[in-house]
Each structure stands twice: as structure tokens, then as C-alpha cells.
């Protein structure tokens, strides 16, 4: 790792102000993704702001009937929370489908949202990558693309977002609460939180420099049956080729979000009207405009079949 200085922040506003003063600084919470990237010198922050002591580790009921999840709630604790298991099964399932027990014990709610892509060319510092080094080019295009995006990609980047948790939160219409460097709080709907790569794949979220996530809120429970179906190359501890977060109601209506296919959790609300007609028309509408590569064209078929399997299970 490159040398860095280290501080422990005492309040969210102070953390945000400190980060704004030192634009190359990084917040560190669980550290499981950041330290990995620092060892590889993909991330080289000169300063770390440890936010573990901020007390943002509670899960509380909101007055609207939903849940407010502190930014520092560990993935283990969120998945084990009785209310999450009972009312937001899709979220508990998504969390448990990701990483390992050791990583979930450290990984936080905000950190999970902010984790970086696992595109192999992002990780290989000997290769150009627009995300790692803006303007250097994309080695993934024309390279080994089996794991990479099939929709929403650009000429600059075909990476995918690796999170399972975020896919479930997209299906649930969560809201990300933040505090900016000037102390102003804001609420960002999850639908607008992660960006598509476009010409600036190194800018991955709607966060401003220094802006600090304090919580994620979930709206009141949707009822229905909850599913998170993850298809991957091994049975555990692997990133998704395709994953589906779904909440299906008794009348066949519902919500569907996809992981493993795009630069952000992929959901097309208009396509959900097709759900009672089955997986084929629904997935055709969700993945309308997909431009898969030769290596990952299978994901389009796999997504449709995975949704078919979820809908079959929902019917019982």
C-alpha cells in the first residue's frame, strides 16, 4: 500500500467536511473492498477517514411504517434483523447470497452500495481502464467479457455493479440519506443513486465530493412473496452472472430488479405490467435494447429462465 494518514471522524458532518478538504481522501468503514484495492494500488488515497465510531449502526422503524438502516449496519446484522427477515425477505436473501460470513461481518450497508466493479480489467493495472484511469480506454471491450454488462453500457465501459444488496434495495425503492460537506442533508432515491457509465465511468454514483451516506430507508413492507435468485459459477462466494430480486403478489403483479447485467441494479418499472403474462414478455421488455457480447449473450436467455423459475415458484 502507498503511505496514508488516518483519522477517526467524530460526526457525519465532520467526516463529510474532512473529505471535502482532502478530495482524494476515502472514508473507511468495513474496509473489505477498499483495502483490497489499496493493496493493488488501484485506490491510492493519501488519507483515510475512519467512520466506524459514528454510531450509525442501528435499524429503527420509521413513522411511515418502513425501516431506517444506519449506514454502518453490518451486512450480517441487516440480514439477521427480525423485521428484515419477516417483511423484506428479498433484502435478507440478497445479503446472504453475497460474499462470505467473514466479509458480511465487516461489510456495511453504505459500503456495499459503494463497492467497485469486479471487472478483471479494472483490477489489472497493466491494462487501460476508463474507470481506473479516465481517458485511458476500455480493455474489456473486445476482451474477455463473460461476466460483464449486457445493457446500459457505453463505448467507454462495460463493467457491472457487483452488489446483491443494492439489487434488492432497487426492487424495494429504498432511499439513500446523506449529509454533504456543507452540512446539508439530502435524500437520493436508489433509482438515481448509481449512474450508467456513459463517457464518465469513473463517476459511479450521484454523491458529490465529500458527501457522506448516513442511512438507507426502506418504504413500508410490500407484502407478497420475496425472492432473490442468484446464478453464479459456483454455489457460494461468487459474483452473479445474473441475479433476480423479485416481489410477487398473489394476483401475479409485482416488481423485478436484475443484478449482474449492468453498471447499476437494472429495473424497468414499465416492464412489470407484463409480469402476469409470464417471464418471456417481461424479460424482453426489461432487457429491451440489450447489446450483449459474443461471450455474454447467454445472460439474456439466463435472465429470462431465471425469472421463469422464480415465477413458477411463486405460483407454487
Amino acid at each position: 500500500m502507498k503511505p496514508f494518514t488516518y483519522e477517526r471522524a467524530l460526526s457525519p458532518a465532520e467526516a463529510a467536511a474532512s473529505a471535502a478538504r482532502q478530495p482524494a481522501a476515502r472514508f473507511i468503514a468495513g474496509g473489505t473492498n477498499l483495502l483490497d484495492l489499496m493493496k493493488l494500488q488501484i485506490e491510492v488515497p493519501p488519507h483515510l477517514i475512519d467512520v466506524n465510531g459514528l454510531g450509525l449502526d442501528g435499524i429503527e422503524a420509521t413513522s411511515e411504517g418502513g425501516l431506517r438502516i444506519g449506514a454502518l449496519v453490518r451486512n450480517t446484522d441487516l440480514a439477521a434483523d427480525e423485521r428484515v427477515r419477516r417483511d423484506y425477505g428479498v433484502l435478507a436473501r440478497a445479503l446472504l447470497a453475497g460474499a462470505t460470513g467473514q466479509l458480511r461481518n465487516k461489510a456495511t450497508t453504505a459500503g456495499n452500495l459503494l463497492q467497485r466493479t469486479r471487472c478483471p480489467y479494472f483490477y489489472d493495472t497493466a491494462q487501460p481502464c476508463n474507470k481506473r484511469q479516465p481517458g485511458s480506454g476500455c480493455s474489456a471491450i473486445g476482451g474477455i467479457t463473460r461476466q460483464l454488462a449486457v445493457i446500459g453500457a457505453s463505448e467507454a465501459c462495460i463493467a457491472t455493479h457487483p452488489s446483491d444488496m443494492a439489487v434488492a434495495m432497487r426492487a424495494l425503492d429504498a432511499t439513500v440519506e446523506t449529509v454533504k460537506a456543507d452540512g446539508v442533508a439530502r435524500h437520493i432515491p436508489i433509482a438515481g443513486f448509481h449512474r450508467l457509465p456513459g463517457e464518465t465511468p469513473h463517476i459511479e454514483t450521484a454523491l458529490e465530493p465529500g458527501e457522506f451516506i448516513t442511512a438507507v430507508t426502506l418504504p413500508p413492507p410490500l407484502g407478497g412473496q420475496h425472492f432473490y435468485r442468484k446464478v453464479r459459477d459456483r454455489a457460494s462466494y461468487a459474483f452473479a452472472l445474473v441475479s433476480i430480486a423479485a416481489v410477487v403478489q398473489r394476483d401475479g403483479t409485482g416488481r423485478v430488479a436484475l443484478g449482474g447485467v449492468a453498471h447499476r441494479p437494472w429495473r424497468v418499472e414499465a416492464a412489470e405490467a407484463d409480469l402476469p403474462r409470464g417471464a418471456k414478455p417481461t424479460m424482453a421488455a426489461i432487457l429491451d435494447g440489450a447489446r450483449p457480447t459474443h461471450d455474454n449473450a447467454f445472460k439474456v436467455t439466463l435472465a429470462q429462465r431465471t425469472l421463469a423459475s422464480v415465477l413458477a415458484e411463486a405460483k407454487g
Binding site: 488516518y6 473507511i28 474496509g31 473489505t32 483495502l35 483490497d36 483515510l48 460470513g101 467473514q102 466479509l103 461481518n105 465487516k106
Partner: peptide, 8 residues
């Protein structure tokens, strides 16, 4: 349990 290699 945690991975001691991924924490400072």
C-alpha cells in the same frame, strides 16, 4: 469472525 488481512 473476520478476515484479518482486510482490516487495519
Amino acid at each position: 469472525r473476520i478476515y484479518s488481512c482486510l482490516t487495519l
